[in-house]
Design a protein around this nucleic acid. Structure first.
Lengths: 189, 189
DNA sequence: TGAGACATGTAATCGGTTACATGATTCC
DNA sequence: GGAATCATGTAACCGATTACATGTCTCA
């Protein structure tokens, strides 16, 4: 795990998508508006500046088509450096803070993992994820007691929703581990 | 549902907390660092400016203690206008976009609902939430098929996690509805 | 030739992050 | 009197949102 990083989750999504196949900003916007791929802003004011930043950082490379016109099309492809950073970020360990604050980003990392890194890395990721969630849940349960003691009925219920979310994610991770290990038939959601 | 609103989720959390009892910025920071109350930045650079904005907007009112010193303590209490806005925001219907992009904010709204509005409003909220989730899941399932057709193994799994999260939330909501209606004993998470 | 999809951009504004700075009170 | 905790703030920077602006291609 190195310290190299990327500013935002949006950038990670862009880097991951562009690493699968070269794309224009418009293609990215289409993906963000028409698929559940993360829920990223498809606003041009977010995507085009992000592409320029990443190009300036050497992570992607733009190729201009129709360059003579006033409305050229630019297709971006990932560079070796971009692939390096992406692989590096996808290899990061799953931390407590990831689980608390960035669960969606973790899922994004997982979604891009199989193309660039092996099944083993996916498995390690899932085991770490499960471990971090299992460490976190008791803390949430203690606060659930506190909410109840204070008579915060809805506060307690809302916490229960959080716990249910983490439990469902841990159960999902365990199921996927079994499937990836071949100990269980695959693909029945 | 009026159009009046507040800029950020952080502001909603602050308004809700301050509406329960007057608090200083420091008190808020402590809550954000030591409890799972949302996961808000406890950074002074976020909280103190937010308090000033909300005071300027007339939603809260600061009371300075120790005003003669260079390090006064300011305790903020909600104003009538603040209560009005909060009640209004808590009464908003649950929309598709809320479910897709702001599930955590929905839970925050729910957590503050019982103090200011009746059990009936909580029940309506939960029914709307369940309905919006049930409408959303088939869309996610269709995209799950697309991921599988494209051979995106991890992509499909990541989507399954999303679906599992929504299913767990819908199940939670249905359970809470029954408990609030008295059709089921309460409080066993 | 017009509609609709394709395609990229900018400017103003705003809130959050990070890092830094500093003072007050309590209690041993 | 020193440590820990209480307590508030600011400045630089940055990325996202919103709204606006505009050009290009395809096909009926």
């Amino acid at each position: 795990m190195s310290r190299r990083s990327i500013p935002s989750t949006l950038s990670l999504a862009i880097l991951g998508l562009v690493s699968r196949e070269p794309m224009s900003g418009y293609d990215l916007r289409k993906i963000f508006t028409t698929t559940p791929m993360g829920h990223f802003s498809a606003s041009p004011g977010a995507i085009y500046p992000a592409l320029r930043r990443m190009e300036a950082a050497g992570l992607i490379e733009g190729n201009t088509e129709r360059g003579d016109t006033l409305r050229p099309r630019r297709t971006y492809a990932v560079t070796d450096e971009g692939i390096g950073l992406l692989k590096d970020m996808l290899s990061w360990p799953v931390t407590h803070n990831d689980v608390v604050w960035r669960l969606e980003e973790l899922m994004l990392r997982f979604a891009f993992m199989d193309g660039l890194l092996g099944r083993k890395v996916s498995l390690r990721f899932l085991r770490e994820l499960t471990a971090r969630i299992m460490e976190y849940i008791p803390y949430l349960r203690r606060h659930l007691e506190v909410q109840r003691e204070h008579g915060r009925v809805n506060g307690a219920y809302a916490l229960e929703q959080g716990i249910a979310k983490y439990e469902a994610t841990a159960a999902w991770a365990e199921r996927v581990i079994e499937e990836l290990e071949g100990r269980r038939p695959r693909g029945l959601s």
